[in-house]
Design a protein around this nucleic acid. Structure first.
Length: 211
DNA sequence: TGCCAGGCCCTCTTTAGGGCCTT
């Protein structure tokens, strides 16, 4: 069997991450308030990262309610700069996964720019991939996909570590489905990135060509 | 609860509009 996609990293280790933030747009002044991440290697969680961070201003009541993160909780949290420096060390140059990755990438880029740190891994978006693989799902919100795939969870949503754990489980479920449904021996980050670039109409034909 | 932004993606499209996702 020959797979016509390229392995980018010697070990298929990825970091699945999720930000909680003060709003939707760093260009409008929004900042990160929590980062959560799990590191996957060979289909297993080998490390975790979770930290609240103080954005330097009060967050809105909407965000307090949405995330369960209060201004009191953030009052004694370390600064975004301190936390993001640690997180930059955590992710290193590994490839990255997030649900609706364009959102998390904007905040990661904005926060790391503040401390002049960089990363060289590339992003894959679990939402774009799920839209192609699970076209019958009622919608492609993270919580809906967790239910659709019957993935066990602890009922916590909109907290960074809980959401990154669920995104990691969704990622592993997609890898497993590719192995079972398309007899792919070693589906990896690069293949899933390629899936996100296919049209919904052509993605299954693309997958059948992979072996 | 919704607004704010931005990218993707579909369609009654491409000289555009609007829903889906993320907080």
């Amino acid at each position: 069997m020959t797979l016509n996609y390229q392995h980018k990293k010697p070990a298929d280790t990825v970091v699945v991450l999720d930000f909680e933030t003060t709003g939707l747009s760093p260009t409008q002044g929004d900042r990160a308030i929590e980062i959560g991440a799990v590191m996957l290697k060979d289909g297993k969680v080998i490390d975790r990262f979770q930290q609240l961070m103080n954005p330097g201003f009060r967050i809105s009541g909407f965000i307090e309610n949405y995330t369960g993160i209060s201004n009191l909780m953030l009052s004694d949290a370390p600064s975004c700069e301190t936390v993001m420096a640690d997180f930059a060390d955590f992710i290193g140059d590994y490839n990255l996964v997030a649900h609706n990755a364009s959102f998390d990438q904007r905040f990661l880029d904005a926060e790391l720019r503040q401390i002049n740190r960089h990363y060289s891994g590339s992003f894959a978006c679990s939402m774009l991939i799920a839209r192609r693989l699970y076209q019958d799902a009622p919608n492609h919100k993270l919580g809906s996909l967790i239910s659709y795939k019957n993935i066990q969870h602890d009922g916590v949503f909109h907290r960074a570590l809980a959401d990154s754990e669920m995104t990691a489980d969704l990622w592993l479920a997609m890898l497993e489905d590719l192995q079972q449904d398309f007899q792919l021996v070693n589906p990896d980050f690069s293949l899933l990135q390629s899936i996100a670039k296919q049209s919904k109409a052509n993605v299954f034909q693309f997958l059948r060509k992979q072996n």
